[in-house]
Design a protein around this nucleic acid. Structure first.
Lengths: 229, 229
DNA sequence: GGGATTCTATGACAATTGTCAGGTTTGAAA
DNA sequence: TTTCAAACCTGACAATTGTCATAGAATCCC
């Protein structure tokens, strides 16, 4: 495992690549590498964050608790993504919880390294800004999807999303296995509804399952379903 | 009407306040003031924007067309807000349409002034970043609300939002009058459903109406309803 | 002022989704 | 291996929401 940020490939995928050598050195000297087990939290809604987390490996769900006690998963973050940025930048406690859905390896970077660089290196700030602009656009898309598509369409879309973003294993199952509850929290529905629709998809031959694992059998039909056919 | 940005009070409410005198002068020299009538578009989904719009007066809805032909209103922007930033920063065509729901007065600022300043003035970039961080948080909240609350709750919440953000007129009606269709597009439901619930609220004495205008009568009950009582 | 058009309203019904109440399976720990 | 809790699944039913049809009210424009 590479322990110096300067040599870390992950960096290429996020805004840290816009840092100067000295800035990176400073980050590298102050960072702490952590291992997070599946089910453990990086941070929880309402926490005051003293830094950001750079994901080296594994996947985290970012979720928010609603008034009725259900979690809504807003985003799934993987290798290369930086978590907690929004909170550090706005100097507010975080509005989301980050919980590992797979074992993770992350680097914690104290906020001083970040805020200092934000004030001095416009390239870095601009890079962060671009990432946030992208996140905002995605959030807009989620809003439209959730409000205008049926649960069935959203679940179909979620499966395609999982395939495109996290890939499949050797046997053709989605590489990221989520519990039925997590799936329902991604699409914003009751767990029973999600399960029912998964069963229906299975009967129709759109997917196949083995335990929690789900594999896509008929991608085209799923895509048609998302578009309303 | 003040025509020099340097003297414009609106600026205090947005990221332009972080610009230097010279930068502001440049913006001021290149900006174009426009009047937009209610119902007209500032820009439409898919447009490539050559600059941003600083709202001096009036209100715009930011919406996105869904596959089934319905608009989803993602945000209502008013005095002081800068529209089109996301698109200019990410150098992509815009993902939202901006349509005036009231007559508007806006300043169009060519993107060169913005991108130049973004590259040179970290304070400005940071300020823009802070605003976008705030927008992102709000978007997260919208996602949770839409997916976890009933239509009734969302409509109650929308009325409270309209009161808190745009105020009331002398007779106690919400200062921003939206059509029933716009209301349904804010909360993400069918127009008929929105109308039905508005009627119900009226019968229960939570609101009163006069034509399209809506006034809040029992704010506490509305708040309770939002929280699920 | 009259006619056309758009917006608002309501009823009837169907489809979707949530809730509750059981079962069964799975998987991890003792 | 057994055991137990958690996760998954299904049925029955109720509540919510969407759709279609229609009619009245408001508004715009000539």
């Amino acid at each position: 495992m590479e322990s110096r940020c300067e040599n870390c490939i992950i960096r290429q995928f996020n805004s840290l690549r816009a840092m100067s050598k000295e800035e990176l050195k400073h980050v590298s000297d102050s960072k702490i590498t952590k291992t997070i087990k599946k089910g453990e939290a990086l941070f929880e809604e309402g926490d005051k964050l003293n830094g950001v987390y750079c994901v080296r490996n594994g996947i985290s769900k970012l979720s928010k608790l609603s008034a009725n006690g259900k979690d809504q998963i807003v985003k799934l973050a993987t290798k290369g993504e930086v978590l907690g940025q929004r909170s550090v930048i706005a100097e507010e406690s975080t509005n989301l919880s980050a919980i590992a859905v797979q074992d993770m390896e992350v680097c914690f970077i104290p906020k001083e390294s970040i805020t200092n660089t934000l004030q001095k290196n416009p390239n870095f700030t601009l890079e962060v800004l671009r990432h946030m602009a992208h996140d905002l656009k995605e959030a807009d898309d989620v809003i439209v999807n959730i409000s205008q598509k049926t649960v069935k369409q959203r679940i179909a879309e979620a499966f395609l999303y999982l395939k495109n973003n996290f890939g499949e294993d050797e046997q053709g199952f989605l590489a990221l296995t989520l519990s039925r509850e997590d799936i329902s929290n991604v699409v914003g529905t009751a767990t029973e509804s999600a399960i029912r629709i998964i069963s229906e998809f299975k009967k129709k031959g759109l997917i196949h399952t083995s335990g929690k694992k789900i594999g896509i059998k008929d991608e085209r039909k799923l895509m048609e379903m998302v578009d309303g056919f």
